Simulated scan of single mutants.
Amino acid sequence: MVNDSANLLHWDIFCAVVDNYGDIGVTWRLAKQLSNEKQINVCLWVDDLHSFSHILPQLDPLLTTQVHHGITINLWSNPLAIEYQPGSVLIEAFACELPDEVKHALLTLYVQHKADPKLQQPPVWINLEYLSAESWVAGCHGLPSMQANGLKKHFYFPGFSDSTGGLLCERELFQRRDEWQNNPLNRMALFSQLGLSGINPQDKVISVFSYESTALLALCRLWQQSEQVIHALIPKGRSLNSLTCILPKPIDELNSGDQIRLGNLIIHILPMTDQEGYDKLLWSCDFNIVRGEDSFLRAQWAAKPFIWHIYVQEEDYHLIKLDAFMQVYCNNLPPELANSWQALNLAFNQEQGEQAIKHWQQLNLVNLPLLQHAKQWPVDAINDVDLASRLVQFVKNS
């Protein structure tokens, strides 16, 4: 039962920034959707406002509290500089471990409500987990976890089936994407806005947002020998670390908008952009190489072919997660095409440069079935109901 109080529509989300943009990217999108589409008063607590400001340029990292897009953003300091006021829902994003002050507030409410049921009860406590296509996720989604102090926490698993928490996707996202992609002038205007010059409408454009990988270096060497011009759009960061041996000068001397021509490959140094700008970038490229969770899902929604560079985990467990997703994604692809796409993704993640080259050459990027599949996949994957809507319903049922 949700709190019957003035705080009924107040939700708190706690996020510890990991890998700069992944976790905060997901929670920021979720906060905005809950606010915009569900009219929920959201307070987002973040421990690293400097990294957050890269995807929200208006954010002032020096302020302990501020409001953007209708969301209250609080600095998660230790101890908390701003008192936590319990609402109806508390989301602990990706097992980030709540502050002691918050746990104390929850326990206090629990004890008081147990003594007098008329008093406010603790918020519905949810641990938002990472997205995974593994089969066990459906069995664990929504399970409660009784804490030693008597409080109850629910595990919420995003996923690709009806039995999971769904996928994060704004209500009108696909419509906005289609309108954007149906007008080629949008793509060229975006490149100009980002300071990327010399890209012709017929040129192939690839966005790169990966971790370090020798496979990326191998592909760049291949693209240098391409029959047509290929533009690789790469921000300063981990992707470029893989290319130091072919760059004409050190990375710290490169600036946004710089171009590096290597045969028929032109590397453009991308400026950082907000989330809406990044979505439009993915919509505008012919192929996207992405990493983590937020950019991984947005690449799927872009309806373009992509490579997912998954975060490395101990004992190569990340490859199990990669394989689980590839099996789901390739379900309706012709076997030969599915095998080539899976092999390319696996080679990139295992840093097998020669294999990545081989499978890139085998994978015909203008192959109509692959492009049709990339277009149809978002419609099938969203499965009628998005994550935010399922999450609200989950809270009501709790």
Score class of each variant (00 low, 15 high):
residue 224 Q to R: 12
residue 395 V to Y: 03
residue 217 L to P: 03
residue 33 Q to W: 12
residue 69 H to G: 00
residue 33 Q to L: 14
residue 340 S to H: 15
residue 257 G to N: 00
residue 308 W to Y: 06
residue 296 F to Q: 07
residue 5 S to W: 06
residue 112 Q to D: 12
residue 128 L to H: 07
residue 153 K to P: 05
residue 101 E to T: 10
residue 73 I to M: 00
residue 379 V to N: 07
residue 281 L to T: 08
residue 270 L to W: 08
residue 341 W to M: 14
residue 362 Q to H: 13
residue 124 V to Y: 03
residue 32 K to W: 02
residue 382 I to P: 05
residue 240 L to A: 05
residue 246 I to E: 13
residue 369 P to W: 13
residue 293 E to D: 15
residue 36 N to D: 13
residue 73 I to R: 00
residue 99 P to R: 05
residue 269 I to S: 12
residue 331 N to P: 04
residue 167 L to R: 13
residue 266 I to E: 07
residue 203 D to C: 01
residue 185 L to N: 07
residue 285 C to Q: 12
residue 68 H to Y: 08
residue 4 D to V: 06
residue 351 E to Q: 14
residue 275 Q to L: 06
residue 31 A to V: 03
residue 281 L to K: 13
residue 77 S to M: 02
residue 104 H to C: 02
residue 360 W to Y: 04
residue 79 P to V: 01
residue 360 W to I: 10
residue 341 W to D: 09
residue 114 K to N: 10
residue 149 N to P: 06
residue 146 M to G: 00
residue 387 L to I: 02
residue 254 L to R: 06
residue 326 M to R: 10
residue 277 G to I: 05
residue 42 V to P: 01
residue 177 R to W: 09
residue 120 Q to F: 06
residue 91 I to R: 12
residue 260 I to F: 14
residue 26 V to I: 04
residue 88 S to N: 14
